[in-house]
Write a protein that binds this DNA or RNA. Structure first.
Lengths: 343, 343
DNA sequence: AACTAGAATGGAATCGGTTCCAAAAAGCAT
DNA sequence: ATGCTTTTTGGAACCGATTCCATTCTAGTT
């Protein structure tokens, strides 16, 4: 305890000091409608002198807003979600709200538990990146708006903000095709995850339209399994010449493995990743990636939530934000120039 | 709104359904002391059937715990602090509490505002990484435990968990000295920041004990200023042969700049950074760093908070956790072997 | 000056729990 | 069976706001 245990002043203390009724103080706090300027001044003075601030618990008890929103993300430590959390926190602050943070670890049971906990806190609204097994049943007692981001709620149309996974994957794959690569491996991700599915579909549509083989190693999560998978695809006659990694963690591992195996990037095998990362431009070669507008996605989701809060209802729109293909050089960008020169 | 606006069951509903008084239900909820096993079962059944969960707002109104702790960090997006937030969130969850997240952006005014906001939420306790200008005055109405981490509260002895900044800097510098470097530049950081000061002091004590020059470029924050500073120290006769970067962001920038200038690491200039980062082992050469036990620091801070909560008081101890020097190769690790071979 | 619409104000109920206290029930020894 | 202690139990006050409603005051109209 830092300071003395001094009881915090209550509304009634302010009322007494200002010589008015409790109802009047309440009116002053909430915008001061129908209060004479004289009384207003007196009450404000009392509030100031006492250092009074309304007790949120008491307010929310009476059905008013708790000025608190919930945020459930798979992992707080993940750069994508921590950036999102930061952006959401900013929007919330601008609206005078606080963020109650919870992590689901992509576990449906944990997710449900966290949702329930937040419901009991009487949050004003909820922003979440739902797991693929999220159950709408957990919202049965819910009377507040819910906005999803990064992933939609499986089987339901809640307001949602997404990155254009399909478009991003398509752009990345097209880029590789355009640069002359013929055997493109799509790897990483979790086939149960919405984002992964969309990205694989984008990749698939492009290779099949170009008459190229569909080569995939999905559900590759760690370094070792990535190494095993890569070994297989780098030897023999079915040798790949490019990799589209649909998940950040895998992109980095693929890079490490290729370097370790002395495979030249992109001369021997090109690489394009999904999701930008801190040092992508510092590696050798710099890694080309699909960059998602994390902050825009999160900010938009938060804004949609507060709009719904103000309007009192929500329209279950799905907003898809454009992603950007960042050309560095791991995607064989120089090949185009080379070919042009060779002609 | 996902579900129907159905009023959530209240304690009284449970009482009526179980045919008991409100007080009895309350007892059952809070551990069931002095309740006959028959009544206990009946009440639990009613709770189950109604899907009842106590309203936290009402509970905290009566002075009970809010089961909520506050966390204030300079930046939510910073990997160090997002890892800390994740760890703290885990501990809180284990104690049935939630985390109210706030960012100070290292702005004392913002920090004060957030503390105040959290106080009005009647949080049970607060964990914060205080800014260098944090003002104890903002705690004047506070009656809950406060624990600091990463940095101490300036001028006050609150319970605090720190990384051993001095020791880490000393180890890093000694390592460079031992490897034969003679002109070691200490750069980066913010001279107002506690962590930076300690690290500079560790560096200083080692170089002065070794009879080496104290060369520092503090308050270098971005790429451009780092480049300007490096230019100065890489030319002329006062040329440096090693760099101890005391801040993560600067380590990366220094690496980029050295690569751009074609300065060989560590042959021409060695580099040791403070704070490990995702791709430190993947860069060429892998970067040697002082690694702080982020998770341990944050977890310990959270545990101290909950201990204080249970005990009802807090002992203002300062815990300093050991840091680890991770030898990769940018610190001239091979030189030792080389010298041995040359002999 | 009389009268009324409208603004300003305070009393009291209410939200959903916790807790004090007194009453009722149960347990136990005699 | 009786008296006494110990458990159980429910009534009611309370926490700190909001809000309905009745009342008082002010100002405008004729």
């Amino acid at each position: 305890m830092v300071g003395k245990q001094r009881s915090v002043p209550a509304l009634m203390d302010v009322a007494r000091r200002a010589g008015v009724g409790a109802a009047t103080v309440s009116r002053v706090i909430n915008g001061g409608q129908n209060v004479s300027s004289k009384t207003l001044a007196a009450v404000q003075k009392a509030i100031e002198e006492l250092g009074y601030h309304p007790n949120q618990a008491a307010r929310s008890l009476k059905g008013a807003r708790t000025k608190t929103i919930g945020l459930i993300v798979p992992s707080v430590a993940d750069p994508f979600f921590s950036a999102a959390a930061a952006a959401i926190q900013d929007v919330a602050r601008a609206h005078g709200s606080l963020v109650l943070l919870a992590a689901s670890d992509n576990l449906p049971a944990r997710e449900q538990e966290q949702v329930l906990t937040l419901i009991h806190r009487r949050i004003d609204g909820l922003i979440l990146a739902p797991s693929d097994a999220a159950d709408i049943g957990m919202f049965k007692h819910v009377a507040f708006p819910v906005v999803c981001f990064d992933r939609p709620f499986p089987g339901h149309t809640l307001p949602t903000v997404l990155g254009d996974n399909y478009g991003g994957a398509k752009a990345a794959t097209e880029h590789l095709v355009r640069n002359g690569f013929k055997r493109i491996l799509c790897m990483g991700g979790d086939s149960k995850l919405f984002t992964s599915q969309r990205r694989v579909r984008g990749y698939r549509d492009v290779v099949s339209a170009a008459g190229l083989p569909f080569i995939a190693e999905l559900n590759v999560q760690d370094y070792d399994s990535a190494e095993t998978a890569l070994h297989r695809h780098l030897t023999g006659k079915g040798r790949i010449d490019a990799i589209f990694s649909i998940k950040n963690a895998i992109t980095v591992n693929v890079y490490k493995i290729l370097r370790k195996l002395n495979v030249a990037i992109p001369a021997s095998v090109a690489l394009v990743g999904y999701d930008d990362f801190e040092l992508a431009d510092t590696l050798d070669p710099p890694i080309s990636v699909v960059r998602q507008p994390v902050v825009a996605i999160a900010t938009r989701a938060a804004e949609m939530l507060f709009e719904a809060l103000k309007a009192g209802d929500e329209k279950p729109q799905t907003v898809t934000l454009k992603v950007e293909l960042v050309h560095r050089s791991s995607g064989g960008e120089s090949r185009v120039a080379e070919r042009r020169r060779a002609r």
